[in-house]
Design a protein around this nucleic acid. Sequence first.
DNA 1: GTTGTCACCGAATTTTATTTGGTAGGTTGG
DNA 2: CCAACCTACCAAATAAAATTCGGTGACAAC
Lengths: 158, 158
Amino acid sequence: MQLDNISQKILSTLQSEARITNQDLADRVGLSPSSCLNRVRKLESAQLIGPYLGTLNLPKICRSVEVIVTVSLKDQSTEAFRTFQTAAQGHPEVVECYTVSGSFDFFLRIVAPDMARYNAINDQLLDILPGMVNISSHVVLTTVKPFRGYPLDTLIEE
Amino acid sequence: MQLDNISQKILSTLQSEARITNQDLADRVGLSPSSCLNRVRKLESAQLIGPYLGTLNLPKICRSVEVIVTVSLKDQSTEAFRTFQTAAQGHPEVVECYTVSGSFDFFLRIVAPDMARYNAINDQLLDILPGMVNISSHVVLTTVKPFRGYPLDTLIEE
DNA sequence: GTTGTCACCGAATTTTATTTGGTAGGTTGG
DNA sequence: CCAACCTACCAAATAAAATTCGGTGACAAC
């Protein structure tokens, strides 16, 4: 699927203002509401744009701790990777997980109600591949910049 | 602001389905549309729920590389921290940034069109505090679990 | 030139959001 | 205990938005 300027603008607008009305969106991109809606539906069907999320202000809602975790596997077999991935996906507290190149194998972001709970999760992760996994925890002190979408401007074209 | 069960359900529903209609939301939480809308407005005013984001499927939209970056400052003065934070916030390619405890000072997630661009950004970050900053890059190989909201169930009550 | 496709628009219709009283429950102060 | 006062709710009316439905023009294939 190739994107003209209008579809790009739809994507970047919906990325940052998911609850905009179709009419407003149509105005912004210079289409009629019906055409605009057609485009949005196509972008959704093609899965260029996925779920729409409300961003919660967690500190205002409940007590919580956020931890960024680096993981290295001593046994870097495909099997070990898959085992760890599956386990990470199964934990709702693991809100984000990546495999990476370089000096670590995984980065996780974990959110728990308190340190005791975090510690329990940490232990569970260590138990996945006993003795074969190296985990370092980094408690988040401040969120300097929360994720608010990708910079499409700097990514597309040029 | 204290949250009863209904408001919690509103928050968790909007977190994962930001474009739900107010009528459907009202049905789900067992309120009339007008009461439900009232609640949502209050939650928004109190900033318990913030911007609504559409999640883009970046690989389907354009070529890009994603890098997770660890940063350590040699000079851990307040001044150095603030300088680095401000710089990170100024780069649109830095889509996420945290200060953390432990063996690093910052974690960043950076998205660039290609490695050459990423390298340029990396250089710019190094130039912020010449010789005083230690940066390690970890190219994202796979997204095991993308962020899709916090697990409110495990965070609230008990 | 004819046919088919595609994306668009405007208008009609359906659905949703929003506003506007009106009511019940709970609290406060007399 | 009662009255004044909140608060949160609902139902109904209105305003706005989403969605559907032809109809048109541009373009490509034949």
